[in-house]
Amino acid sequence: MTGRAEVDAYIAAQSPAFAAALTALRARLRALLPDHVECLSYAMPGFRQPGAKGRMVVGYAAFTHHLGLYPHSGSVIPQIDCAPFKTSKSGVLFSPDTPLPDALLTAILAARAAELVAARARKA
């Protein structure tokens, strides 16, 4: 099964409200990360950088009572004001009725991109 097919199956297995919210988030992420590759990582859908050694940029998941967005880094969410959403060290939680605002989604992706660029520069 390809990355997209795995993500399709993951979303299809959710309740209708969660599936609709995940589908909308997926489309927004795809628009913001057009050259990235869809995949499953840590059993959640997400996007990785293009190329053979592309790093995970962001993942998202459904749980019993909420959805979550995870930038695959423990240092991104603590540096961003995610209020009024609940957060953990590694993600921000939301509901189908209250999706993440575009500005917050963009800020999370920008912080993760900057972190990946810095990591690449340290390796060079």
Rank of each mutant, 00 (worst) to 15 (best):
P16S: 14
D35C: 09
M56V: 06
T87K: 06
A119M: 11
K86N: 09
P84M: 00
V117M: 05
G54E: 10
F18D: 13
K53T: 12
F94Y: 10
G54I: 05
A111E: 08
S73N: 07
G3A: 05
I108C: 05
P71V: 00
D8T: 03
D8S: 03
K86C: 02
A107G: 08
P34V: 02
G74M: 11
L93H: 07
M44S: 00
E115L: 03
P16V: 09
S41K: 05
A12K: 10
M1V: 09
S41T: 11
Q14A: 13
L25K: 03
L104I: 03
S15N: 15
S88P: 01
A17K: 15
A5N: 15
P78A: 00
A111I: 01
C82W: 01
A19V: 07
Q79S: 15
A118V: 06
S73F: 03
I11D: 02
V76Y: 01
T106R: 10
A13D: 15
S15M: 11
K53Y: 07
A12S: 10
S90F: 09
G91N: 11
F94V: 00
R4D: 13
R26M: 00
A83N: 12
L67Y: 06
A110C: 06
I77T: 12
F18E: 13
A24R: 11
V57F: 00
E6C: 06
R28I: 12
S95Y: 06
Y60H: 09
A118Y: 02
